[in-house]
Amino acid sequence: MKILSEVGKYLILMKEVFHKPEKASIYKKQLLLEMDNLGLDSLGIVAIISVFMGAVVTIQMAFNVDSPLIPLYTIGFATRKSVILEFSPTIVSLILAGKVGSRIASEIGTMRVTEQIDALEIMGINTASFLILPKIVACVLMYPFIILISMFLALAGGWLSGVLTGLVASSDYVYGLQYQFKMFDITYALIKTVVFAFLTASVSGHYGYFTSGGALEVGRSSTKAVVNSSIMIILFNLILTQLLLA
């Protein structure tokens, strides 16, 4: 029953969030600010993780295809598949759920407990839309770029580790990256990314918005936001994979 009640509250909140904005120019300013806060600010951590994960995936592939019957370009091919289909869209989105989700929930939650949301409401502003919509739109717009950068850096990291350790020649790795390349893989990854971006921002916004109490509850909301965003990402990853690849 509690889950149903929570889902109901979430859906009602989303109805409020997608109301027409009071003043477009203010929302535009908010959107640009959120694109910077939630998107550009996440690039550093995504870049570091992507390069190292790409490197590790390549090394693991090289050890697993240690057979003369399997061509070396398989390393590049398998790394590409792992990175594009799963690592960048799903694992990076999970990492972003932690970073972006906790930021959204704690920011909105703190505004709630310090009566800043009440102040907005008394002014006659649709607070759900004013606070959550720019964050959702910013995430949905920025995540695909972040994920594309993550893919590039992970593949570059793989190339670097493969070549530097002598596990695979540069030409073999690059041939593997190009071998049987399907554009749909990128489309599939970006569709997942957009859905994950929406889930992270909206679920975290929901937990932040309904915070009540003090600093302890803000922390709890932030934790709940990260945990539930991650669960939703895993669940929708399965659903979307079945829908798009089966």
């Binding site: 703190t110 505004m111 310090t114 009566e115 800043q116 009440d118 102040a119 409401e121 008394i122 002014m123 006659g124």
Partner: peptide, 20 residues
């Protein structure tokens, strides 16, 4: 209509509730 009245309201909160 409530929104219109709310735009005629100013409120001072206990902690100020200034936007951080």
């Amino acid at each position: 209509e409530k929104k219109k009245i709310r735009q005629e309201i100013g409120m001072l909160f206990q902690g100020g509730a200034l936007f951080d």
